[in-house]
């Protein structure tokens, strides 16, 4: 199952756990399963079924386009990080 690294500012929702394992084959499924186990998580990460502006998604160390449709491997490592501001990153067009 994918491993999700929990950002330090969200660890209050996971009783301090810094990483958790949840099932899912896409980012959307992973987030929905996170919400089941750790209520409140989805509201922090998503807005209208999209990743919130200001949050970047890394899968296996690589920056993705931040789409909830992104597929993830069974042993993927997923990070939700503050999106890079300051203009060097273009987000969704």
């Amino acid at each position: 199952m994918p491993i999700v690294a929990i950002p330090s500012l969200l660890r209050n929702l996971t009783n301090g756990e810094d990483s958790v394992t949840v099932p899912g084959t896409t980012i959307r499924e992973v987030i929905n399963n996170l919400e089941t186990h750790y209520p409140g998580m989805k509201a922090r990460l998503c807005e209208d079924d999209r990743i919130k502006p200001g949050i970047a998604v890394y899968v296996n160390g690589l920056l993705t386009r931040g789409s909830i449709l992104e597929s993830v491997d069974a042993d993927a490592e997923i990070h939700f990080l503050p999106a890079i501001g300051g203009g060097i990153s273009e987000t969704v067009h």
């Binding site: 969200l10 922090r44 200001g54």
Partner: peptide, 21 residues
Amino acid sequence: TASMGETADEPSNVASHLQHK
């Protein structure tokens, strides 16, 4: 102030707070 998807109640010049641990 926004911090990882959460917004503070009071207005401030601090637009956001981020943390890595």
